[in-house]
Design a protein around this nucleic acid. Sequence first.
RNA 1: GGGCGAUUAGCUCAGUUGGUUAGAGCGCCGCUCUGAUAAGGCGGAGGUCCGUGGUUCGAAUCCACGAUCGCCCA
Length: 1024
Amino acid sequence: MNVPSLESTEMFQALPQYPDHPALEEEILAWWEEARIFDRLRERNRGRAHWSFFDGPKTANTTDGLGVHHLWGRTYKDVFQRYKALQGFDQRYQNGFDCQGLWVEVKVERDLGLNSKREIEEYGLAAFARRCRELVTESARVVTRQSIRLGQWMDWGNDYYTFSDTNIEYIWRFLKKLHERGWLYQGHRSTEWCPRCGTSLSQHELSQSDVYRDKSDPSLFVRFPLKGRDRESLIVWTTTPWTLPANVAAAVNPEAEYGRQDTGEWVAVERFPEDTFVERVRGSDLVGLEYEGPYDHLQPAQGIVHRVIPWDEVSLEEGTGVVHIAPGAGTEDFELSKVHDLPVLVPVDESGRFLPEYGWLHGTSTVEAADQIVGDLRERGLLEHAETYVHRYPHCWRCETPLIFRVVDDWFIAVDELRPRLLEANASVQWTPAFYGKRMDDWLRNLGDWNISRKRYFGLPLPIYPCACGHVNVIGSKAEMEERATSGLDQLEELHRPWVDNVPIRCESCGEEVRRVPEVGDVWLDAGIVPFSTLGWQNPEWIPEGYATGAAKGLTRADLPDHAYWEKWFPAHWVTEMREQIRLWFYSLLFMSVVLDGRAPYQQVLGHEDVRDEHGHEMHGSRGNTIEAEEALSRMGADVMRWMYCEQAPTQGVKFGYTPAGEIKRRLLTLWNSAKFFVDYANVAHFHPQPGKTETSQALDRWLYARTGKLVADMEDAYDRFWTPDVIRAFMAFVDDLSNWYIRRSRRRFWSEDAEALQALWHALSRSVQVIAPVMPFLADHLWRVLRTDDQPDSVFLEPWPERGAIDAQLLEEVAEVRAIVELGRQARGEAGLKLRQPLRRMVVQGAEKAQGHAAEIGEELRIKEVEFGPVEAAELRVKPNLPLLGPKLGKELGAVRAALQAGEFEQLEGGGVRVNGHEFGADEILVERGAREGWALAEADSLTVAVTTELDDELRKEGRVYDLTHQLNTMRKEAGLALTNRIRVVLPARDGDLLDYEDRIKDEVLATEIVVGQVEEPQIEMV
RNA sequence: GGGCGAUUAGCUCAGUUGGUUAGAGCGCCGCUCUGAUAAGGCGGAGGUCCGUGGUUCGAAUCCACGAUCGCCCA
């Protein structure tokens, strides 16, 4: 059909056949900006009941833009903020950027071509810090632009940047408080260490995905000759040759049996069941034996007595049952050194290269040393056997370098005393999905002390100043620093290295000058403090732009609010991030909040899995299946992407791609077509909607109003549970009802410009657009602008969330039953091979209790003249027990009754019941199925049975031909390209002359002015 | 090794407190309706609901054990 053009008298702007999502979205974006829609929404909600959401900071370390995996979370954030805004809640909308720490440093190092800490220091820490800030600035710009394109409404320009002096000061306060409680300490322990980054990694950095990867290492069986035992030796197994020079002991399982082979080699018997042994002893009998260390000739090992120690954990699953112990190069080894008072040799420096005292190994890396050590052992006859071994091994999450273990001094937060409080706080949180809450519990229960120090440059400077007198000074603010500084304040540009290092302070215990430790802090301190630093916790006075300090100055205009503000907005009602944040941001938030305030910082959490490609594979650059946000936004549009994210349950990865996007676009067409249908007919009818009007004389309209009310209720319910798959389901179910029931049933009313029908449809469409707006803000606002009246707000987001209204549940059930009957009617017709164009005489419906008032509707829908409700007469009866009733009643006897019923061994009673096996059952206790009699077709489902007559008489046949003819003529109209309003003249062949009995009806159906019989073989039409 | 999830149609997934014939979307085949629809409707093919055992009148659903996959921890 032709699209009516918008004339001056027409109310609604015509819609094209298909939406162009990306184009439409660009228009809406520009208009939102120009008409200040978001500002007006915030103004409207200001001062109303508030809803608090904290945004997890996006690391601002790349200028390549976002990937589609970032946009799932951003979509959730926007969907629920928009939903709450529609409901009138006042919100903050503060976006955040994570700006310092290894993520940023490593990217800058790469950009600058630096490859070690020495090169960074040569480059200069001040210049390096400036480059970090530049990267953050540019990265934030790109992220902001793309987020806006996604439709994310945030308070852009007032973002928080974690490298702000204010943020840093709040962490200082936190650390000072820990120190006062005695929970901050310096630990000397073995930790995972990245030799490239030159720093240790914390437990939660190791918990990131991609850390454990398959790695191929040498697998060595090395001979440790026993002292005082001629030609006897221990055989140890190791996959880290570089640790052998640090060997100080060998551990055996005291309970296991060890055997000496005729070669003099001692191993666990269980490991070598095929071998023969000349002597067998228990592991405990070996304990105390001394052996020659593999590198006793190097200086560090000289004078060390190597001996055999017992260790219950020695595995008999792999190796030889004798474990080489190097306390300076392994965590468990280090713990054993404390128990057995073993010396600790740390063989490599912070870049993983051997120290000078290791002679010929000096300067080689752990990797290079491996080959040399293998060769050396072989030469000296100490290598029993060598092969290659593939195992899971931790790698640095940023630079992918295999980690080593080093014993170093780091700063830790003791968690044992806090653990019960953390668990208690987590118990108050409502997690979606619920099992993520268990994950957090699990993490909290197994948590080791938090290593917060990093031996790096551009990060949170730890405010720790240990003094030679033994006192550890921890300062809690910049003011305190200024007060206690002995010099250097004039050069303090911001609270970062190098500037902050040049401000020594006076020791509060002895008065001597002390300097800051060189370490910076874990990035999760930066992110975890956000609910305190951005909300003005304990800040006496509101400071305009008070958050925009230090490195953040000029990047944001965020204020530092006062404590009353914090009281209002803390804790968050809701936060959402990806699953891995349980052990990262969700954890650091919880931790810092429990320390400072004793409460959980959030009440509800929504977590989600990761984004996959459309085949379910992880997106990887190397696989070539990644999709950049920019490309997806411009090719499929933001609404389609948002829909894709929302449709998927958060417990499973979203399968993202252009194939599912195409499917979504097609499904969205039903809504679009419904709106287009309305617009076309409303314009023809010069219809003017009346917002709020729901009175009507028609039952079908009343049904639509009720159905629309239920839509609002269903959507609210799903949004309130933060479960977007149900949002999508509820919406699609409604659109289906609207299009395939209401509009289809009402077509003739629209042709006749029925204002009640137009009003009902307008109401339903407006409501649909309102309730789906959080998910698809662009399409929703586009349609809203087409549908709205002049008295309504210009954006759907300025229209208050709709009331559900009174929902006529009974009517909804009635129509649901009508639709079930119609479906069965079609099925029965189909079985009898009677197409819908052929009218039928009679239909009987049994088992319908609610649909009885809708007989005419059913008849019309199925083109059946008489619709009766009552018992279906049947050729045969099949009776089944109604299980929910008879199951509990009969128990074990049910089987026998069921069998008897199936065999037909029953007697029918008055009122529809039966007698079987001596029991009498009422009509409600059994289910009856019927076989069709001659001349009837039958279909049934659940308790409904529908029977239609299959016999045709002349009148029915003739009517069938009228429908065929109408169909044929309309097809011809369509093929001739006639418009909706064109009138035609029809010439029929002589054989169809009898159909003129229905002349008026045909004229009406095909918009004919005249029908005549002429000398033609087939019907013909011409425009008049 | 421990914990948490998952396993249902060719694909992607639903499946309420245990109940009769396990569903939807997409894809495939046939039919059909249509003056919004590139759509819709009906029917069909396609399921050992991962397996085994148990509880129960009755299990995709509850329990136990096992398998496979994923995530986390060790």
